[in-house]
């Protein structure tokens, strides 16, 4: 009845690993904690179980855009659809380098402000993950409704606040779209670029410090240091972590107030 000729009786190590990876996915019962979207291995320290479905994330900091894209990269590779809204100038090549599958990305731009809540409602219904840029202004009342709808539908909402050149800089970072209702908040600050000298070299990688906190997170707070992007554009963990970073904000240079 079954064609067993091509199947070897004992699986090789690679096959066993693949089977082990497959096993949790084909189990008929899924616990709430297991309803997650996969994340890149480099983000495993921050989200060991993956990205919880239905969660709302507020991402701020100078490397927020890259981090938000990196968060959704593995999910899109695994077949999830991602919508990008209110993020003009989306860097497609950078997104591809971070691992996003561009075949499963839909961009909605521009969105007239009057229909933003309705538009986001439709996105939450249809997509597995929605990336909101700073241009998607969500009024306070509908933000709560939107987050509730995302939780019910199992859609991950990632709202990015872009401090650079979006006027107002860091003061607004705390009150970006959905910041009040977010289950998880990530502060992603660049700690310096490599590869560039005074008139020579080219941009290599950037080290960032990620601080993730939220009520749905065991232990409430996690920190990690990443290459975001790494020298080839992908995400990689920083091999030797700075031990003293724990419990302290990454140093943020002050905003110059006068010319």
């Amino acid at each position: 009845m079954f064609d067993t000729r091509g199947v070897s009786p004992s699986p090789t190590r690679a096959e066993a690993a693949a089977l082990a990876e497959l096993d949790p996915r084909v189990r008929p019962l899924t616990l709430a904690a297991e309803r997650t979207l996969p994340v890149l291995p480099a983000l495993g320290a921050l989200l060991p179980a993956g990205l919880p479905r239905g969660a709302t994330l507020a991402v701020s900091g100078s490397a927020g855009r890259s981090f938000a894209v990196a968060l959704l990269a593995a999910a899109s590779r695994a077949g999830s659809w991602v919508a990008v809204v209110g993020a003009p100038g989306f860097g497609w090549r950078a997104a591809a380098e971070l691992g996003l599958d561009l075949a499963r990305v839909v961009v909605v731009d521009p969105v007239p402000p009057a229909v933003v809540p309705e538009c986001l409602g439709a996105l939450v219904d249809g997509f597995d993950a929605v990336l909101l840029g700073a241009e998607a202004r969500v009024p306070g009342a509908s933000a709560r409704r939107l987050a509730a709808r995302a939780r019910e539908r199992g859609t991950v909402l990632v709202a990015v606040v872009e401090p650079w050149f979006s006027s107002g800089t860091r003061e607004r970072a705390a009150q970006g779209p959905l910041a009040d209702v977010a289950d998880l908040r990530a502060l992603v600050e660049g700690e310096g670029w490599g590869g560039l000298g005074s008139g020579f070299g080219r941009l290599g990688g950037r080290q960032v410090a990620v601080e993730l906190e939220g009520r749905r997170l065991p232990g409430r707070r996690r920190q990690s240091r990443l290459w975001l992007p790494g020298p080839e554009g992908a995400v990689a963990p920083v091999e030797a972590p700075h031990l003293e970073v724990l419990g302290r904000h990454a140093p943020t240079p002050p905003v110059r107030s006068t010319a």
Binding site: G79, S80, V106, V108, D109, V111, D125, G126
Partner: peptide
């Protein structure tokens, strides 16, 4: 992770969005 039917959901959402923001504003 339950992606069966995801494409179909996306098709419906895209049709709805085209009605909301116009067909030229929903792109791949």
């Amino acid at each position: 992770g339950g992606e069966a039917g995801a494409g179909e959901r996306v098709v419906r959402a895209v049709a709805r969005l085209e009605g909301l923001v116009g067909p030229d504003a929903v792109r791949v």
